[in-house]
Amino acid sequence: MAFRHLTRNLFQFAKLANTNINQRLYSSIQHSYRYRLLTANQNYVSIRAFSSLKTNDNAYRDLDTFLQKEIQLEKSAQKHPNSLPTIPNFQVQTDGPEVTLTRQTGKDKITVKFSVTNTVNADESDQESDLNPNESEQKSDNAGSQLKSRPTFTVDINRGSQTLSFLCSYLPNDHHEAHNEQQPSENALEDFQIDEFTIHDGEWNETVYSSDCSVIDGELYDKLLNLLEEQGIGEEFANQLTDFSTAYEHQQYIGLLDKLQKFVKS
């Protein structure tokens, strides 16, 4: 919990300097669709290296050939090809990119929801290497290990007709990297912050007031974190969630490539 008390001090900075960048580095596919721009009379003119007037299927064939290799590379890079990581004490339900976790603790029902869409972040070092095509190509085969899905998630604690709801997000990379340097471990530690909280009767709607946690009393904020931890939503859960989300997001991405290949072949 010692690191958690740093959350309040870093919270304002995290809100203003969110360094998360949704950028996929699984392969050199990121370099395939860049446009070169020509400045002429202060107007930008897009120049393509190929003719868009041809009516043959070269583009489809080229894409299909690329996808055959790309899908195999992605499958070989999967850390959990056969089964997803578990999140102990929670029942897991998935619907496309949407994930719902539920558990019952006494008279409280805990529900955690998140989506893996656009949740993949690249480390800062990976972003810098993207500026150097040679370095990016060298790292492309190992890029799967450089990616993490760290989604924003909601936590609902339902008690009778009332629900206490939290909107949470992972701390930026530089924060948890600093913590890992102070307390080295085999696996990188994750932590999260509470962005907003509210309480409502029945189903939530837009008329329900919620509070931004960057402006609430620091002691209240810490007690809300402690409440979540007692409900099983703490640092250990944060690591389990990002492990699951990373594996599930990768699974969804491979599924998207499969659909793209089927579309190209149709």
Rank of each mutant, 00 (worst) to 15 (best):
M1A: 12
L6P: 01
Q12F: 00
F13N: 11
L16A: 12
N20F: 01
R24C: 09
Q30P: 00
S32N: 13
S32T: 09
Y33L: 12
R34P: 00
R36V: 11
L37H: 06
L37A: 09
Q42H: 12
Q42P: 01
Y44L: 15
Y44C: 08
A49I: 04
S52L: 12
N56I: 03
N58H: 03
Y60V: 10
T65N: 15
L67C: 05
K69C: 06
L73H: 08
K75F: 00
Q78K: 08
K79T: 12
H80W: 11
P81E: 06
P81F: 08
N82A: 11
T86F: 01
T86D: 15
I87Y: 01
N89A: 14
N89F: 07
N89C: 04
Q91G: 08
Q93M: 11
Q93F: 03
T94F: 06
T94R: 07
D95F: 04
G96Q: 10
P97S: 14
V99R: 00
Q104T: 13
T105D: 13
G106L: 14
G106Y: 10
G106I: 12
K107G: 07
V112S: 03
V112R: 00
K113I: 07
K113F: 00
T119V: 06
T119S: 12
T119M: 01
V120A: 05
D123R: 03
S125H: 07
D126W: 01
Q127V: 02
Q127G: 02
P133E: 12
E135L: 14
Q138T: 06
S140H: 05
G144N: 08
Q146P: 01
Q146V: 00
Q146F: 08
L147G: 04
P151C: 10
D156A: 15
D156Y: 04
G160D: 09
L164T: 09
S165T: 09
L167E: 15
P172W: 01
P172V: 00
E177F: 05
N180E: 12
N180K: 02
E181T: 05
S185L: 03
S185K: 07
N187Y: 11
I194Y: 04
T198G: 12
T198Q: 14
D201K: 07
G202E: 11
W204S: 03
T207G: 05
V208D: 11
V208I: 15
S211I: 08
V215P: 02
V215L: 01
V215R: 02
I216G: 03
L220P: 02
Y221H: 05
Y221D: 06
D222T: 04
D222I: 05
K223P: 02
L225S: 04
L225H: 08
N226Q: 13
L228S: 02
E229G: 03
E230D: 13
F237M: 10
A238L: 09
A238F: 04
T242C: 09
S245Q: 07
A247I: 11
Y248F: 15
E249H: 12
Y253F: 13
Y253L: 14
D258A: 10
D258W: 10
L260Q: 14
L260H: 04
Q261R: 15
F263H: 06
F263S: 07
K265T: 11
K265A: 15
S266R: 11
S266K: 12
